[in-house]
Design a protein around this nucleic acid. Structure first.
Length: 500
RNA sequence: GGCCCCAUGGUCUAGUGGUUAGGACUCCGCUCUUUCAAGGCGGCGGCACGGGUUCGAUUCCCGUUGGGGCUACCA
């Protein structure tokens, strides 16, 4: 078998969205699994909507997921250029061939006329397709119109009878009746090729072996295949991937919330978790394993494992998976990713000392076992970084508003101020010792203490978390909580979020 | 409307002409623990429907229903 070459061919008309990332990932995984090449091609034949920013967003999104390309606009390659707007002469040449062979023809219908006729057809219940008005325009008439400078586009004359059969790796054989296809535009009035023309030419010239794309393109495929046949191009193999759906089961789009891949980075997702999650929508290794690292993904990925039915993007499960990665990942590595998130929130300084970094790593190590998103560090773990944290209602209600608590907190502060060293075991001794002296269970000191120091009733081991806070800070928090409680300011309040 | 695709719990899925239909997320219990939003254990919940084919269909065929995609001088 000749070399496997797959491509991702986005149009730079917006951010890299989740669906695009999914397609790119599958095409990339397949190429990597097969030891082939993965090509990035930019389809900017939409002159009005294409933007530079969007191109940058595509690069950033792919890089975030660690999807790399062997050939592309920035890295070049044997079939450069990889940006369609830089290949206009190539398409022009192929369009001319079609014009010469009679499979292409000039169409002088205006968009307004087309719209009007389409409406009429629709109203009559006829499938709206181009009526072929300009197909057999006499040559002299064409010359006259040309001479008049009348604008025109070029259409492709599709087969009138029979059927076009697509062999799709994931769907099997799919047949389309040719009579239902209309003569479609291959060159716009502007001179730009349409998507249909450009993909076909580029997939052939770039020697793409497997066209892996989303299912929304399945219905376009007979058009592409006919074009290829007419041009004498060998057909690639096709694999149409299931779509990603929103919770309402329609194609995932803006109205479902975040569809920009990088929004998930900002929401606290790890790239490896998002990659893993994307991979298991519409694909399964067959085994009962869902957590797969990059190497496993590449090793196990096959097109046969791709499912036909679309899948809902379940954010809940994505968050769970992210939590699994957070747990498994090395604390030092995680700290590196977390740093910008903390700085964004103004919770960590710009030029920390080695000591301070070591402290952060320790915090991350303590916290990561119970987080699902990176942003949990700035919400649940806020008390590590600032005094500006809230006392949630559960803590207020259950402990901080209790009558006996202020005295207990003060007593604990007193005791902690005299322990000879600030460490897990000395802290634990102090707390348990106080409980014993008061003749109450340890929990009666531990819980109020946790509430006062963290504002929450849940979290990592109290003694360990206290060790990571400066003694002065802990003591100050205990005293402050006691004071607030005495002033009657520890009653549950409506304004406090975090009442979970 | 026409064409095409799809159909296993709410969601992601494994799987088979004969299985107690398996796993994961969510949810609910129980348990461990100083706490749970962590860990452990357990539970609820599914083959869309109707016809065939067959000794036997979740599995194969047809239809229905439902969902989705496409129907542009957007890609």
């Amino acid at each position: 078998m000749s070399e496997v070459r797959t491509r991702f061919a986005p149009s730079p008309t917006g951010n890299l969205h989740v669906g695009g990332a999914h397609t790119a990932l599958f095409a990339w995984l397949f190429a990597r699994h097969e030891g082939g090449k993965f090509i990035l091609r930019i389809e900017d034949t939409d002159e009005v909507r294409s933007t530079e920013e969007s191109l940058a967003a595509i690069y950033n999104g792919l890089k975030w997921l660690e999807i790399d390309w062997d050939e592309g606009p920035d890295v070049g390659g044997p079939f450069a250029p990889y940006v369609q707007s830089e290949r206009l002469n190539i398409y022009a040449e192929q369009i001319d061939r079609l014009l010469d062979s009679g499979r292409g023809y000039r169409c002088f219908c205006t968009p307004e006329e087309l719209d009007e006729r389409r409406e009429i057809m629709r109203a009559r219940g006829i499938p709206p397709r181009y009526d072929g008005r300009c197909v057999d325009l006499p040559d002299e008439q064409v010359q006259t119109l040309l001479a008049e400078g009348k604008p025109y586009c070029v259409r492709f004359r599709v087969e009138e009878t029979g059927a076009t059969v697509i062999r799709d790796i994931v769907r099997g054989e799919v047949s389309f009746a040719n009579e239902l296809l209309g003569d479609f535009v291959i060159r716009k009035t502007s001179g730009y090729p349409t998507y249909h023309m450009a993909v076909v030419v580029d997939d052939y010239l770039m020697q793409i072996s497997h066209v892996i794309r989303a299912e929304e393109h399945l219905a376009n495929t007979p058009s592409h295949v006919q074009l290829m046949d007419a041009l004498g191009f060998e057909r690639p193999l096709y694999a149409h991937l299931p779509l990603i759906l929103g919770p309402d089961k329609t194609k995932l789009s803006k109205r479902h919330g975040a569809v920009n891949l990088l929004d998930y980075r900002d929401q606290g997702f790890l790239p490896e978790a998002m990659r893993n999650f994307l991979a298991i929508i519409g694909w399964s290794a067959g085994a009962e394993q869902e957590i797969l690292d990059l190497d496993e993904l590449i090793a196990k990925f096959t097109l046969e494992g791709v499912s036909k039915s679309p899948g809902v993007f379940d954010l809940e499960k994505a968050a769970w998976l992210n939590g699994e990665y957070l747990k498994a990942v090395d604390a030092e590595y995680l700290t590196g990713i977390l740093l910008p998130v903390l700085r964004e929130e103004g919770l960590f300084q710009d030029d920390p000392s080695d000591e301070r970094m070591a402290w952060l790593i320790a915090v991350v190590d303590l916290m990561k076992g119970r987080t699902r998103l990176l942003t949990d560090f700035t919400t649940w773990g806020r008390y590590f970084f600032t005094e500006e944290f809230i006392f949630d209602n559960k803590a207020r209600k259950k402990w901080l508003s209790r009558e006996d608590v202020p005295n207990r907190l003060d007593a604990l502060a007193e005791r902690l101020s005299v322990v000879e060293s600030w460490a897990v075991d000395t802290i634990e001794q102090a707390i348990r010792g106080l409980a014993e002296e008061l003749g109450v269970g340890a929990g009666q000191v531990i819980h109020p203490c946790r509430s006062a120091v963290t504002g929450q009733t849940v979290g990592p081991s109290l003694f360990h978390l206290m060790e990571l806070l400066p003694r002065d800070t802990v003591i100050a928090r205990l005293r402050k909580a006691a004071e607030l409680a005495r002033a009657g300011q520890m009653e549950p309040v409506a304004s406090v979020d975090g009442d979970v």
